[in-house]
Design a protein around this nucleic acid. Structure first.
Lengths: 152, 152
DNA sequence: TGTAATTCAATTGACGCCCATAAAACGCCA
DNA sequence: TGGCGTTTTATGGGCGTCAATTGAATTACA
């Protein structure tokens, strides 16, 4: 674990392209020799941000489906939620992607975007929203009582 | 344990590079033969300082994640707080690092920076702030010594 | 054929690597 | 224990490489 670490700031150009942080790309390559990277993106249902998943991790999200009756309402609801709201994205050879318009709107993205690593996946935020979210996460992590120890 | 001991003062150069104290480097090497060292840095929540962790110790900070449901709010809060606010850093061959701009601002670093060993991790401070912190820690440590046993 | 989208090329800047120098730490030995 | 030579450490600068961004060119496609 710990593939996606840190917060990185990049800019979208006039064509809506934005570079994926170089340190994130390795974990997004399907084959180590690939020129491009692949990922799944979708709106965060909890926040005004975008979730980005490596292919392998996204497959794990779909694992609960296997436990459901394929013809049940539950199955359709879950699969619609999972696949219907997700986008499969491939970067260009320079490691840039264009985010779907609906997600850009969901996250309220302008020119500057923030990539926030969360270990096994990462999120894409509008800068101010990212700051707010980081603050919230810190407060809640502390409240959980799971706050990392080690400080005097 | 007891890897990081003492207080060391070094300077950032024009490129923002600062030498990690030589006595700290051994514990930051992933392999004993490595030419460079690796560490995680993040803002201290409680103080205007920077925390620096060896890779192995940082992994221990992430251990509580394993106890949580991967799709829970708690998991996301904790991983956002831990990974989103941390930076993975590698030194150059001379043992120097460049600290992320956001952390430089958080700690109010200027040219001279202080490395303060805390056993299994260390902190990076602006000199005056380090002095203030040391004073505070001393006072509180004394209070602990005078406190009846068994009471937190 | 116009429009959009993708590919290619070029610029800029950040970062890592190498070498140089000065200062401090260390070890050795009289 | 004090002096001296050697080694390590801290710091500075030059240079090449890679990443990020921009602009131009080519292709796809309606």
């Amino acid at each position: 674990m710990g593939d996606f670490v840190g917060t990185h700031v990049n800019k979208r150009d006039g064509k809506g392209r934005v570079s994926i942080p170089a340190s994130f790309r390795a974990s997004l390559r399907v084959l180590p020799t690939d020129e491009t990277v692949q990922l799944f993106v979708r709106a965060s249902h909890r926040h005004n941000g975008i979730e980005a998943w490596p292919v392998a991790e996204f497959d794990k999200l779909a694992a609960p489906l296997a436990l459901l009756d394929k013809f049940s309402d539950d199955y359709e609801d879950l699969s619609a939620s999972l696949y219907g709201g997700s986008f499969s994205i491939e970067s260009d050879r320079e490691g840039r992607i264009v985010l779907p318009e609906s997600l850009v709107r969901h996250a309220g993205l302008s020119e500057t975007v923030v990539f926030m690593g969360l270990g096994r996946m990462f999120q894409i935020w509008e800068p101010l929203e990212a700051e707010r979210r980081r603050e919230e996460a810190r407060a809640r992590a502390r409240a959980i009582g799971q706050r990392p120890r080690g400080e005097p």
